[in-house]
Design a protein around this nucleic acid. Structure first.
Lengths: 240, 240
DNA sequence: GAATATATTCAACATCTGTTGAATCTGTGT
DNA sequence: ACACAGATTCAACAGATGTTGAATATATTC
């Protein structure tokens, strides 16, 4: 065979990893259907057929990309959560501490983990908001960990009805994933005052924001619950 | 020609509107690239060529779908904002009132506006989180109105630095659009305690949540700003 | 160093994609 | 009834898509 054009290859990493890297970047930008296998393999400097060989097909490649970093993240976040809980003994960690343990590893890696991590979180934003992929993939890969965080949130707000915790958590992930998408819309809107890529600013602000939100939900629910009881008590007093 | 199969047509609406309806539904579910023109025209009971005839192409159809309801929404939301501001005269409306004016028309229509509106908001969720479409389409069609809401938020929190308002707004839209995506993940996570389709629950909770979040951001910024001044004052006292 | 297993490329496939131009249908005004 | 314009269908196109099987290169084992 003629001399292989090694310059066209992106690095000396094995082909399957180069495919994962390229797929991660492109899926994050244009979603599952917006990218062809030829786009991916061309970016990776590799033949199209390698995808089927290594992963079985496009769909399997997509989930492989999603899984690769999920496991790393879950380990790291679980450790951080447990550390926060240990450090607060014999008491309970604050709401802010738990929210920070949840978000900090993500924001940290997106900001300083390299371009692969940045793409990965944009992909998570895509998946989380997708009616097609969201329920299956997020649930499968993140819910075991999320359950532990929910438990931590409930412990930090013991008097709060669980329903409020779940809604508060959904609002949190919504805010977080839009941040990861880094669409740059806040840049235009604020006239350059805020930058979507400035994840340090997000890190400072997100946990106060959602901690205050959780407390407001909790108070609202308790005052709502108190009113009917007050009315019932009034009715009881009146009747006999 | 043989008898036309009228039963296959979805309604008596003209072809271009049937195409818009079908496209809305399918784009919302699978994004721009996940849907072919044949998917759309088959769902609409219409020939493929009609898309080019009426809209010019797939991309133009996509923006037509996006624009159709955006104008209706913007009018309605602007009226509501102005009404809220008028009702509060001679004072300022509360933070909660402004946030509600922002979210209520959306949640209201998504919950009770019919399946078209429901699809539309899922599409907005897709666009808002898309690095490709988000900056262009959201900015073009919604930013004039959003600027007015931002102004209202600033008036409701006069001592708050503008930067905090923009971040708070971004967290708000993130929470809101994930809600619109209705992926059903919260159903699984909460074991059925919360339902993604229960937008009344969201409506009750979202404005207390984000209003508390805005106030927390504001307080944080003010206390951050106070500290360096205190330190500077201390240093000045020490030096002479 | 031959044998063998793994990794990668090549060429081709059937199918699907968006778009286009000509043909046909449908309704409206005269 | 006719002409005419707008709406809709038909048929076909060139190119892209995911996948596959055979051929070749590279690495590992004996």
């Amino acid at each position: 065979m003629l001399q292989r054009n090694k310059a066209s290859r992106k690095s000396r990493r094995p082909g399957d990893e180069r495919i994962l890297d390229a797929a991660e970047q492109l899926f994050a930008r244009r979603g599952f259907y917006g990218v062809s296998l030829r786009d991916i393999t061309q970016e990776a400097g590799v033949d199209v057929a390698l995808v089927s060989y290594h992963f079985g097909g496009k769909r399997e490649l997509f989930t492989a990309v999603f899984e690769r970093r999920a496991e790393v993240l879950n380990r790291e976040r679980l450790e951080l959560l447990e550390e926060v809980q240990r450090a607060a003994l014999p008491g309970r960690p604050t709401l802010e501490a738990i929210v920070t343990a949840f978000t900090q590893p993500l924001l940290q890696r997106s900001a300083r983990g390299g371009s692969g991590w940045k793409s990965y979180f944009a992909l998570v934003a895509y998946v989380n908001n997708s009616p097609e992929f969201g329920p299956v993939m997020m649930t499968r890969h993140f819910d075991p960990l999320v359950d532990k965080f929910i438990a931590g949130l409930r412990a930090a707000l013991p008097e709060c009805p669980p329903r409020e915790i779940y809604w508060g958590y959904q609002f949190l992930t919504g805010a977080l994933t839009l941040t990861f998408a880094e669409t740059g819309r806040i840049d235009a809107l604020s006239g350059g005052l805020c930058r979507a890529t400035d994840l340090d600013s997000v890190h400072e602000r997100l946990s106060p924001y959602v901690a205050a939100g959780f407390r407001a939900l909790c108070e609202r629910a308790l005052s709502q619950a108190a009113k009917p009881r007050a009315r019932a008590a009034l009715a009881k007093r009146r009747r006999p």
